[in-house]
């Protein structure tokens, strides 16, 4: 399939007089990793919220594999294949790491309304969850409540939750923010693995230039809610550096 898996057409959201996302039209293809940069307040996370449905669009459309999902509720979009890892970690704090991941797999398989079998008897769900937990190297903490985890481990779990969804669209929102230098490679390695899958469409909000250079096939720049640059990372970055003054340091040269 060569058509776009995800597309936004004139996607706009206004809060009162403020236009947070301004008529963004952009198509994303399977097998492609698109990095999204822009200064703080440029509308990156808001753009994500419009795609995954946390925020209703004022105007424009979101299309998933050509189907209009602009009005679909969050849960329906997730089940249709939109996966998201949040910038502000959002987990189930009192539940264990394994339970967090198991709940995702259970949701994906539509088994949440089963009220009479025991969870402990759902061996296939537990095994699948263990495999995902292993991928993010959290096996030794699998039984710990999430609230007891370090920030870095919670970030890993945040990504694990999206991987467990096995979505068509992967949306990473600053996945390595606040992680230590020795923890980040686990996440970056996972993103590289996902990128290698020709069926996966990956959107990545990221500030670190070296990460973008090594992972991104394409770079788009948002500024004041509008799409101002789109192209191969090297070319966009070259021009972006020129305009750095007005982009306000959207890229960190690490």
């Amino acid at each position: 399939m060569n058509g776009p898996s995800l597309e936004t057409r004139g996607l706009t959201v206004r809060f009162g007089g403020h236009v947070a996302v301004d008529a963004v039209s952009c198509a994303f293809r399977p097998g492609e990793l698109t990095a999204i940069v822009g200064p703080n307040g440029a509308g990156k996370t808001t753009y994500f919220n419009l795609i995954s449905g946390q925020l209703p669009a004022t105007a424009g459309q979101v299309l998933l594999e050509g189907r209009d999902i602009t009005r679909a509720p969050v849960a329906a979009r997730t089940r249709a294949g939109i996966g998201r890892a949040f910038q502000l970690t959002s987990l189930f704090p009192a539940l264990s790491v394994l339970e967090n991941v198991r709940l995702v797999i259970q949701a994906r398989q539509g088994r949440g309304l089963r009220a009479f079998p025991r969870v402990s008897a759902q061996r296939d769900l537990i095994a699948a969850a263990e495999a995902v937990v292993e991928r993010v190297k959290l096996t030794r903490l699998a039984k710990s409540p999430v609230a007891a985890l370090s920030h870095g481990d919670q970030r890993k779990l945040e990504v694990a939750m999206m991987i467990a969804l096995e979505p068509k669209i992967y949306m990473f929102d600053e996945p390595t923010a606040g992680m230590s230098l020795d923890e980040a490679p686990v996440i970056l390695g996972l993103i590289a693995e996902i990128r290698a899958d020709p069926a996966a469409t990956v959107l990545l909000v990221e500030h670190k230039m070296d990460v973008i250079r090594s992972l991104a096939d394409r770079l788009i720049v948002l500024h004041n809610g509008a799409l101002v640059a789109d192209g191969p990372p090297a070319g966009v970055m070259a021009s972006a550096i020129v305009r750095e003054a007005y982009l306000g340091g959207a890229l960190e040269d690490v």
């Binding site: 995954s52 509720p73 987990l91 189930f92 704090p93 539940l95 709940l103 009479f116």
Partner: peptide
């Protein structure tokens, strides 16, 4: 049950429960 675990997930974080489907 699986249903009971979803209830606990909603109690913990309804936003994320919705976001995982």
């Amino acid at each position: 049950s699986p249903f009971g675990s979803v209830l606990q997930a909603i109690r913990e974080n309804a936003f994320r429960a919705e976001a995982i489907g």
